[in-house]
Amino acid sequence: MAGGAQLSVTDMRRSTRHPVDYSVIAEHLQHGDVTMHICNISAHGFMIDGAEGVNRGDRMIIRLPSVGRIEAYCIWVTEDRAGFQFERIIRFDDFQGMIAEMQPNPALRRRG
């Protein structure tokens, strides 16, 4: 049996990434609550730094502003960073509300 996440959404890394500086407590199936630092996010996923102990295929549940609880799967790990893909795409209005809370500095927000 193959290990790791079986994701239904194809590679969406062309999505616009928004730089953020946001810490969350993730629920990890084996490790319990884990603090993670999100350094960029898109409607399809996010990247963390300081990813010690995170492995490809790990499933996490996090709580995001405007979005609430959402599941994500680790799709890559390199050095101290890891990339996660959400199990579903975040709706546009929820995403905008989330970014407004995660990027309190207006200089970081994309014009649009």
Score class of each variant (00 low, 15 high):
3 G>M: 11
3 G>I: 10
8 S>Q: 09
8 S>E: 12
9 V>R: 09
11 D>L: 06
14 R>P: 02
14 R>V: 05
15 S>Q: 04
16 T>L: 15
18 H>A: 00
18 H>N: 04
21 D>T: 02
22 Y>S: 00
22 Y>W: 15
23 S>F: 00
25 I>F: 06
25 I>D: 08
25 I>C: 02
26 A>N: 01
26 A>V: 05
26 A>D: 01
29 L>T: 10
32 G>W: 09
32 G>I: 03
33 D>L: 11
34 V>I: 15
37 H>R: 12
39 C>Y: 09
39 C>D: 02
40 N>Q: 13
40 N>D: 15
42 S>N: 05
44 H>V: 05
47 M>H: 08
51 A>Y: 08
53 G>Q: 05
54 V>R: 03
54 V>Q: 03
56 R>E: 15
57 G>E: 03
60 M>F: 13
64 L>A: 05
64 L>Y: 07
66 S>K: 11
67 V>R: 14
68 G>T: 14
69 R>G: 11
70 I>G: 03
72 A>H: 02
73 Y>S: 15
73 Y>T: 00
76 W>I: 00
77 V>Q: 10
77 V>S: 01
80 D>M: 07
84 F>S: 00
85 Q>W: 09
86 F>K: 02
87 E>D: 13
89 I>H: 04
92 F>Q: 12
94 D>Q: 14
95 F>L: 14
96 Q>C: 05
96 Q>R: 10
96 Q>L: 11
98 M>V: 00
100 A>E: 14
101 E>L: 07
101 E>F: 07
102 M>R: 08
105 N>E: 14
105 N>M: 05
106 P>S: 12
106 P>C: 13
108 L>E: 06
109 R>N: 01
110 R>I: 12
110 R>F: 13
110 R>A: 13
110 R>E: 07
111 R>I: 04
111 R>W: 04
